[in-house]
Design a protein around this nucleic acid. Structure first.
Length: 492
RNA sequence: GGCGCUAUCGUCUAGGGGUUAGGACGUGAGAUUCUCAAUCUUAAAACACGGGUUCGAUUCCCGUUAGCGCUACCA
C-alpha cells in the first residue's frame, strides 16, 4: 500500500461521514447499503465521504478484499472524496490516543493472559454468571503497573469504565439511547502486541478525521456507549450517530451465504443492472415518506440516483430490520433494463457477452436495433447471452420445447422452407410486406397463419418467446430470414 | 442468561388518537396479442397478544411474546 492520501482540514460547516469496511470479506449487501446511505447523505448535504479501511485484524484482512470492496462501490456508482485510509498505517495515532487515556487515568494496563480470561469466562458461564472482566488489574497502582510493563511483561490496555451512572447518546434514527455503565466491561483498547482494537481505532480516527455523523449498521449500537465514554474521556464532542437497521434473509435471520449471494459483485454476475440494485438497496430500510408520492397518491418505487440524493434524509430510515426480497430486486432489474436506451444498455450487455465468452457477429448498429427490440422481454442481462443470441449473430441454440411445440410438424417445416423463397424474392422488406407475404402464403396453402407465424418464430430465433414476428424479421434482415427459414427442414 | 433494539398484508413500506388502513413486489382471475413477457382491469392479503390512558387506540404508556443485535486482546 503506497503513501497515504492527505486528510483535508475538517470544515464543520458541511457533514463529514465515512464508510469504514473491514477487508475480511468482499463487499456484502449490508455493507453496500451502509455505504450507500453514507454516500447519499454526503451528496445530499454537500458533505464529504471518507473511505477508511479497518484492517487492524491483520490475520483476517487482505489487500485482495480491499480491491473487491472498491470494485463493489464503483459498480454501484459510489465515489468517495478522501481516502482510502488504512488503519494499519495509522498505528501511531492510536498509540498516542491510548497514551492520553492512560495519562488521564481513563485507562490501565492489564496483565491477565488470554488463557486466564477465557478460563474465568467459562467458569462464569458454568455458574450462569454474566461473563465480564472483573477489573482485577484496575486495582494495581499505576506505578506498579508501569514497572511490570517496563520489565517487558505483556499487557493490554483497558478502558476504565465508570462503575456507576449511565452513558447516554442521541441516535438520529432511534432517539435517545441509554446504557448502565455497570453493564459495560473494561474493554481492551490496545492489545498486548500494541495493536489497537476496533473500539480505540474507530474513535481515534473518527475524531482525527473530523467526522460529524456516524452512519453505520445497528449491530454497532451496543458498541456505541464504549465509544461515547472515550469521547468524554478525551474531552471531545460527540458526533451524531445514526444506526441503520440490518438486512435479513428470507427466514428473517441475519443475511448470510446460505440465503444465496451476499457479495455485491455476485449480483453483477447474476445479470443485475447496478442502478436497479442501488434503487432496491436504497429502499431497504429507508423510504422518502410523503416526498415519495406520485401525483396520483401512489408510492414511487423507481428512483434514479439523483432522486435518491435529493430525497435522502436520516429521518426516513426505518427502525426495524428489512428482509432482502429477490423477487423485488428482479422486478427493479426488468424495469431498468426496459427503460434504458439501447446505447446505455449496450455496454452492460457487452460486459455480459464478454463474461459468457460470446462475440456478436453483427455490427454495433444492428446490435443496438436488436437490443431495442428485445429489451422489453428481458428480465436479466443474462437473457442477452442466452435466449436472445439469435438477434446478435448466427450461432444460437434451439430451445427443444419450442421446437417440439411449433415445429414438430414436418409439413410446417416444409412450408417454411418453401416460404423462404417468397421472402428472398421480396422487393421491399418491411413489417407490412413481410406480414402480407406470410398471410398470402398461408391462405394459398390453406393453413392457419398462426401456425406459420409460430413456426417461423422458432426457426428464426430458436425460442418460443420473442417480439412480434415481423419486427423480428426486419431486425434480422432479408437474407438471414430466408436462410433460417430454408434451414427449418433440418431443425427437428 | 444479561443488556439493547424492533414489531402494519407473505415481503418492502406509507400513515397516524376518529381512515373503506394507502402503494409496490409476489400470488389468483379476466381482457388483449402472433408466442411469451409486458399492459389494462380485478381479487385475496396486515395494524403480534394482553392490560392501561382516552368519549375513542392500529397510533400514546406498561407488560407478554417473538425476531434481531451485542455480550472477544474480531470488526
Amino acid at each position: 500500500m503506497e503513501s497515504q492520501p492527505k486528510i483535508m482540514i475538517p470544515d464543520k460547516k458541511y457533514p463529514r461521514v465515512r464508510f469504514a469496511p473491514s477487508p475480511t470479506g468482499y463487499l456484502h449487501v449490508g455493507g453496500a447499503r451502509t455505504a450507500l446511505f453514507n454516500w447519499l447523505f454526503a451528496r445530499h448535504t454537500g458533505g464529504t465521504l471518507i473511505l477508511r479501511i479497518e484492517d487492524t485484524d491483520f490475520e483476517r484482512s487482505s489487500a485482495e478484499m480491499v480491491t473487491g470492496i472498491l470494485e463493489g462501490m464503483r459498480w454501484l456508482g459510489m465515489d468517495w472524496d478522501e481516502g482510502p485510509f488504512y488503519q494499519s498505517q495509522r498505528l501511531e495515532l492510536y498509540r498516542a490516543t491510548a497514551n492520553k487515556l492512560l495519562a488521564s487515568g481513563h485507562a490501565y494496563y492489564c496483565f491477565c493472559t488470554k488463557e486466564e480470561l477465557e478460563q474465568r469466562r467459562s467458569a462464569a458461564a458454568a455458574t450462569s454468571q454474566t461473563p465480564r472482566y472483573d477489573g482485577r488489574c484496575r486495582k494495581l497502582t499505576p506505578a506498579d503497573a508501569a514497572r511490570r510493563k517496563a520489565t517487558g511483561e505483556a499487557a493490554a490496555l483497558r478502558f476504565a469504565v465508570p462503575l456507576t451512572g449511565v452513558t447516554r447518546f442521541d441516535d438520529a434514527v432511534f432517539g435517545t439511547l441509554e446504557f448502565a455503565n455497570e453493564e459495560l466491561e473494561d474493554f481492551v483498547l490496545l492489545r498486548s502486541d500494541g495493536i489497537p482494537t476496533y473500539h480505540l481505532s474507530v474513535v481515534a480516527d473518527d475524531l482525527d478525521m473530523g467526522m460529524t455523523h456516524i452512519i453505520r449498521g445497528a449491530d454497532h449500537i451496543s458498541n456505541t456507549p464504549k465509544q461515547v465514554l472515550q469521547y468524554q474521556a478525551l474531552g471531545a464532542p460527540l458526533p451524531i450517530f445514526a444506526h441503520v437497521p440490518l438486512i435479513l434473509g428470507s427466514d428473517k435471520s441475519r443475511l448470510s451465504k446460505r440465503h444465496g449471494a451476499t457479495s455485491v459483485m455476485a449480483y453483477q454476475e447474476m445479470g443485475i443492472v447496478p442502478e436497479a440494485f442501488r434503487n432496491f438497496l436504497g429502499l431497504l430500510g429507508w423510504s422518502p415518506g410523503a416526498a415519495g408520492k406520485t401525483a396520483d397518491g401512489k408510492d414511487r418505487e423507481l428512483f434514479a440516483s439523483e432522486d435518491l440524493i435529493q430525497l435522502f434524509s436520516l429521518e426516513g430510515i426505518s427502525h426495524s430490520n428489512a428482509v432482502f426480497d429477490n423477487d423485488k430486486l428482479a422486478w427493479f432489474n426488468t424495469e431498468y433494463i426496459r427503460a434504458y436506451p439501447a446505447e446505455r444498455l449496450l455496454p452492460l450487455v457487452a460486459q455480459e457477452w464478454k463474461r459468457a465468452g460470446y462475440t456478436p457477429s453483427r455490427s454495433t448498429e444492428e446490435n443496438l436495433l436488436a437490443i431495442d427490440l428485445v429489451k422489453q422481454r428481458a428480465r436479466n442481462l443474462k437473457d442477452f447471452s442466452t435466449a436472445f443470441l439469435a438477434y446478435f449473430g448466427d450461432e444460437f441454440a434451439f430451445d427443444p420445447a419450442a421446437v417440439a411445440k411449433f415445429l414438430g410438424d414436418a409439413a410446417v417445416r416444409g412450408l417454411l422452407a418453401e416460404m423462404a423463397e417468397r421472402y428472398a424474392a421480396l422487393e421491399v422488406f418491411d413489417e407490412a410486406t413481410t406480414e402480407q407475404a406470410l398471410r398470402a402464403f398461408a391462405e394459398e396453402k390453406g393453413v392457419k397463419a398462426g401456425a406459420l407465424i409460430n413456426g417461423s418464430r422458432v426457426a428464426l430465433t430458436g425460442q418460443a418467446v420473442a417480439p412480434s414476428l415481423f419486427a423480428v424479421m426486419v431486425c434480422l434482415g432479408q437474407e438471414r430470414v430466408a436462410q433460417r427459414l430454408r434451414a427449418a427442414v433440418t431443425i427437428a
